[in-house]
């Protein structure tokens, strides 16, 4: 198990030592996000703008247009959910000559339903939909701390606006340290020929468990980590559609507009096969203590058990 926020800041501090251009901004959640650790080592490159997310985004943009690499962080619910105008018109739209958007990385924690006890007001299930329709933005949903570390490095080295959504709770490790991460390239974590589960974030682990269960029942299930929701890996998805004939998607996000939608859009254009989307069924979340989060997810069908069920059902609909 690993803590994404700890890994995020550990990587940021390494980057801060390597590159003077890295600056970090927060909005009164810097202890929670742990970015205050960056501030301790680099007080001149760390800015806490208070509970003012609009301000957070626009100040990050001003730093970026002046040549800095801005990492702005708070909870998911307060960035795309609150400051979409500043994100759209202040980061994505302004394009210096030869570039697309400003060099700002919005890295949030507390994405999706697994936020738990804070309740529905804090469970951001719309952010992927919001962020992936904004031109010039690229959207990542890491499954584990290895992914976090590699993606933070990748974002720092790649010019342009990024959105990365981390989970609040500790997550199991699903990738190896040697795994390579590329923008727009999904990862095949397990091969299979009867069906594909395309997952992201905390549901990747569930997908692997579902595939294991299915294997015991003689069903060969492929598992893809679609951490790069935008750009989405159309080639990998087409290959999965051709070779396995059906796809189940899974995410802790509204099924409308999320990663599942992105998969459906791509596959329906390139090689249509039956698709089933698992996620919040256009319903808000609610409070659940840490040991009850699995119950909350279960209510929305976000379990490996449901994945197994959906895989079996969808196989019968193959063309």
């Amino acid at each position: 198990m690993g803590d994404m926020r700890t890994e995020y800041v550990k990587t940021l501090i390494e980057l801060g030592r390597e590159n003077q251009k890295v600056v970090v901004l927060g909005a009164d959640t810097t202890d929670s996000l742990k970015t205050s650790g960056f501030g301790k080592e680099f007080p001149d490159r760390f800015f806490n703008v208070g509970i003012a997310e609009a301000n957070l985004v626009s100040v990050s943009a001003g730093l970026a247009v002046s040549g800095k690499i801005s990492f702005a962080s708070t909870y998911a619910i307060f960035l795309p959910g609150r400051a979409v105008d500043q994100i759209r018109n202040g980061i994505a739209y302004p394009s210096p000559p030869g570039k697309k958007g400003l060099n700002v990385k919005l890295v949030v924690s507390h994405g999706g339903l697994s936020v738990g006890p804070d309740g529905g007001s804090h469970q951001q299930i719309e952010d992927i939909a919001i962020m992936r329709v904004i031109p010039n933005f690229r959207v990542f949903i890491p499954a584990d701390t290895i992914t976090v570390s590699k993606l933070v490095r990748l974002m720092a080295n790649e010019y342009g606006p990024f959105y990365m959504r981390m989970a609040r709770s500790k997550t199991p490790i699903v990738h190896s340290n040697s795994q390579e991460f590329q923008i727009g390239k999904g990862i095949t974590l397990r091969d299979g020929s009867d069906c594909t589960i395309a997952a992201c974030g905390i549901t990747v682990r569930m997908a692997l468990e579902a595939a294991e269960t299915l294997q015991q029942e003689g069903i060969s299930c492929r598992v893809l980590d679609m951490f790069s929701v935008k750009p989405i890996d159309g080639d990998l998805l087409e290959k999965a559609a051709r070779e396995t004939g059906c796809i189940v998607t899974s995410e802790e996000h509204n099924i409308l507009g999320g990663m599942g939608s992105a998969v459906a859009e791509s596959v329906s254009e390139r090689y249509p096969v039956p698709i089933k989307r698992i996620g919040a069924q256009d319903m808000f979340g609610e409070s659940a203590r840490d040991n009850e989060i699995s119950l909350l997810l279960e209510k929305h069908g976000i379990t490996s058990f449901n994945m197994v069920k959906q895989v079996k059902e969808i196989r019968s609909k193959k063309l």
Binding site: F47, A61, G62, G67
Partner: peptide, 9 residues
Amino acid sequence: SYSIGIALA
């Protein structure tokens, strides 16, 4: 806010 970013830089 944007100007503040530039000024901080």
